[in-house]
Design a protein around this nucleic acid. Structure first.
Lengths: 232, 232
DNA sequence: CTGGCAATCTGGTCTATACCAAGGATGGTT
DNA sequence: AACCATCCTTGGTATAGACCAGATTGCCAG
């Protein structure tokens, strides 16, 4: 069934990837070298690489090179387990960087929570790592009335843990949406990947036991970094 | 901020797309024509198209052309509403084609349901349309002991409806997984798209009230066709 | 009127090459 | 030891052109 050459290339590359000994730090050889080795042009080779990227087998770090993608992290967005906890539970190493903390309106959050568009929120933006790979850019918008003084705290741990502990907030109702996307300029930059890289967007609107709005958040994951799970 | 040219192209194309009057049947002009119009090469133009494809704004039907993508269908995989019902509830037109019905073992289903790998299942494969666009290729594997004689029925309506009605099966526990993927050769062919097109895979293992395995299924959606929702 | 073949349209694949721009390493300076 | 300018490596973008292969259309023959 004489295939397109780039599809044959993916097979060769798959072999290369399977064999951790043939790679250093899970890093693939440079495109030019691979193209030469397989007697083709960089363009054709890149088509093969793009295919494997779509399958989630390899990924690239902007202008640094191609790397073998690790196992996907299992992630259940319906639970309120903290990032650090569920990453560690899977024997991976979590890390969080807080990129910004501010107070300002955010119409999309307001709309999702049923508040007027001009309503101000505590906004926290973070970048999260698994085994030192930046895989998630997230923004949270918390309704200030629910957690006055929130911004005095540190945000490198679970925000929901904070809300529960200091303000006794019970996260009752959640409305979750997930869809494939192309990472925005900003998210791509924060994650160190090419703009337009495939991603998975997850956003949640969260209400307390009395149906009062508590928080809205948006997560932008590298598409190959997670496998979403839900158990009911 | 002088951008890459293909990114400027995406802006022009976005304009083109916004304006339904400039397109016939939501169909974009041929690549060669667009390339000429924007004074660039087909390769560069295709990069812009690929970007918009990743954003879910346009899609292509294998060797037929590029089309503007419709609104995403909202889909809650935790509910057992039938496809026809929730599609119609969103004022869209559903259609289902049964591609295959057979009895045979399927190790992945067996594993997900905790059965021996050699266990035989009723296997049903369908293709589902929204507004005449094939958006979903799905396979279901039903445990025969739960629904003897199932294959005598028709499968263009809700399978879960059938199970409830004829065998009084209550779908109690579900284990759901979702991840981005590249569509397989077979799925791509069934959906009339290029192999390797970005997709969203959803699979479920379902048990009855007594924790007995009932069914395992795999759904392969075009990535731009749905927005997954979950409310808790 | 209908079935089938052929031309044509459209995207799909591939070659060969050039230059750009960000990341990282190097080595010298302070 | 910290810092910074520079160079090199690597992917990112772009051109120009050629041929392949499935989908569609339309014509022609039966």
């Amino acid at each position: 069934m004489s295939d397109a050459y780039y599809l044959q290339l993916t097979e060769h590359l798959r072999e290369l990837i399977r064999d951790p000994e043939r790679l250093t730090d899970g890093r693939l050889p440079p495109e030019r070298l691979l193209a030469e080795r397989f007697r083709t042009t960089r363009m054709t080779l890149r088509q093969a690489l793009a295919q494997l990227e779509g399958e989630g087998r390899i990924h690239r770090s902007n202008r640094r090179g191609w790397f073998v993608s690790p196992e996907r992290l299992l992630y259940d967005p319906t639970r309120d387990a903290g990032f650090n906890d569920y990453v560690r539970a899977q024997e991976r190493v979590p890390r969080t960087e807080v990129l910004a903390v501010e107070t300002r309106p955010h119409p999309p959050a307001a709309q999702a929570l049923g508040l007027p568009a001009s309503h101000a929120f505590y906004h926290i933006r973070r970048r999260r790592f698994v085994d030192d790979r930046a895989v998630l850019a997230e923004s949270l918008w918390v309704v200030p009335e629910r957690a006055p003084g929130l911004l005095e705290h540190r945000f490198d741990h679970s925000l929901w843990g904070l809300l529960r502990k200091h303000w006794q907030i019970e996260l009752a109702h959640r409305s979750i949406r997930m869809m494939s996307e192309a990472l925005s300029r900003q998210d791509a930059k924060d994650l160190g990947v090419t703009p337009g890289t495939a991603g998975l967007g997850i956003n949640r609107a969260i209400f307390d036991g009395e149906r009062r709005p508590v928080e809205y958040d948006e997560e932008h994951w590298l598409h190959d970094a997670i496998c979403v799970t839900v158990d009911i």
